[in-house]
Design a protein around this nucleic acid. Sequence first.
DNA 1: CGGCCGTTTGAGCCACATCAACCGGGGTGG
DNA 2: CCACCCCGGTTGATGTGGCTCAAACGGCCG
Lengths: 314, 314
Amino acid sequence: MLHRLTLQGRSCDELRQLASERRALAASKDGNLRALLLNEATLLEFYGELRAWMDRTAMPPSQRAAQAIAATSHRSSAFDLSPILSTFARRMGLSLADQRSLLSISQARNVAKGEMIIEEGGSSVPLLLLCSGVARATRTLEDGSQQIVAVCLPGDILNPGDFVLGRSGISISTLSSALVLSISAPELHLLLQQQPTIVRGLWRETAWRASVQREWLIWLGRKPAEARLAHFLCEVASRSLTSGRETDDFEFPLTQRELGDILGLSTVHVNRVLQQLRNSKLVDLSRGRLIVRDRVGLYQAAEFDPTYLELPER
Amino acid sequence: MLHRLTLQGRSCDELRQLASERRALAASKDGNLRALLLNEATLLEFYGELRAWMDRTAMPPSQRAAQAIAATSHRSSAFDLSPILSTFARRMGLSLADQRSLLSISQARNVAKGEMIIEEGGSSVPLLLLCSGVARATRTLEDGSQQIVAVCLPGDILNPGDFVLGRSGISISTLSSALVLSISAPELHLLLQQQPTIVRGLWRETAWRASVQREWLIWLGRKPAEARLAHFLCEVASRSLTSGRETDDFEFPLTQRELGDILGLSTVHVNRVLQQLRNSKLVDLSRGRLIVRDRVGLYQAAEFDPTYLELPER
DNA sequence: CGGCCGTTTGAGCCACATCAACCGGGGTGG
DNA sequence: CCACCCCGGTTGATGTGGCTCAAACGGCCG
């Protein structure tokens, strides 16, 4: 009943128009049909965004990303390009031309919640950019316990160091449905030869990630459970803010088990500490939403200083 | 009674000759005089090394490093260039020309044991290469406790990410007397513009460091004290091996307090765990030496897999 | 010789783990 | 439509790894 849309050749406005039609239609339905319609709408919006951005930066629109999206069509997640672009510009310090080149050779791919994106130990892995959704990098130990070593938000590069190391030391999987852009290693290699300035951007992103990891190391080694959790929440809230929204209310699809795997704690203990934070009116965390009630108090409890997340302008 | 030597313009062999004369002389003395003579000898040897290496790679010898060394003259530590060169070639994948350029603009500096090299929060920090000795990167928390987030061995870059981030997020100090080469940020900036291939080498080193940190994260989060300690010792032993020597007997100038600050444990507990490892005949650690008695057993106790330390050839 | 630093040992305690049970909601199959 | 289940969250009881406090020991240096 839903015929496949042709995306190519449509103008940005046309695409937005189509998207809002889908949304309107969705409002009158429910269940799976509604979900499908909404998904199509977000895809259309994504393509519209991409198109608009490429027009803005005066480039003949690349069909690659669009094609890939048309192919994987159903099941996508809410989306816009701004987190990725903001990372390109602010954190990696890339020129518009470099941003454009990266996007133009990237393939888009929808990933379902809980799906594995790359396996530990793989070699010649593509560079992966997270457009929407949340992902984690995990190591599983022999006894079955897990440690999450990174949480990626929209705009983050999932594996910034893998390309130079020539392998991935860790598995990455999604915590929500997500849209991922991927650039194959050979193609990236070529691009970096043509535009060597991009190398420095990737280096910067790798270093940024390392400095985030360093903070994790510090609280894992030296802080008690409550401060650990508070610090992690501060980090997530702070990173979410800089990548867009302005509220103190975030989507936060982590279970308590996953929080435990981040903080090196048991699920039970995470639960108790979470209640302490709730009771002291610092944060509220339930049903996949994180609400910061007292930002200053939370920062204090965590000894959180956000400067490590910021980069000086170049 | 010891006149200052002129170093410039001497050939490599001449320098080595002078060094061995000093050593011979030292044998007949003792106390401070002997120490001074030995120090001069090691400096002469260093300069000879540098000279030899530059001759080998067909470059007009840069006077910079040599001058700096002559200036700081007294108090140096045993030294050779091979660890740094091995890192340049193997871990960073630099061409001979790139290696030469880096060395030629670096300033050498002797650092005493326990001395601070860079303070947390500084900006525009130089790139620092550790030639000899051991160093650590530390964060001190408000309550006075410390967490060591990295241990650097000869050949390591102390702060691979700082240059792109434009600041140092951490303080670095020595654990033994050390020889450090430093390259100021502006000069490095210039060099990277002329020889952009070096950027990728630094990116690689940054990524390598991040993957070491990741392992720390994993044992801090999920492993009990004994496995943590074992894993750390494995890492150090493994890294020491690849950067030169062939024995299972290493210089290891860490106190139990410092081990605790690495592993997130108290001194007392480090002591007890260390005894467990001793009793099970895996390692022996005393008086600044680490002796691996049963490498295989130690690897098993730690679930240690050294692949994360190695890099595939390019 | 005394003082200092690093190591060692013991006693008691607490943060956090483990085990086990129950709750509540959303999805599924009959 | 209900019954069921499964998963995530919550709660309690109990165990323990690692901490803290305190004191003694041994080597090194002035």
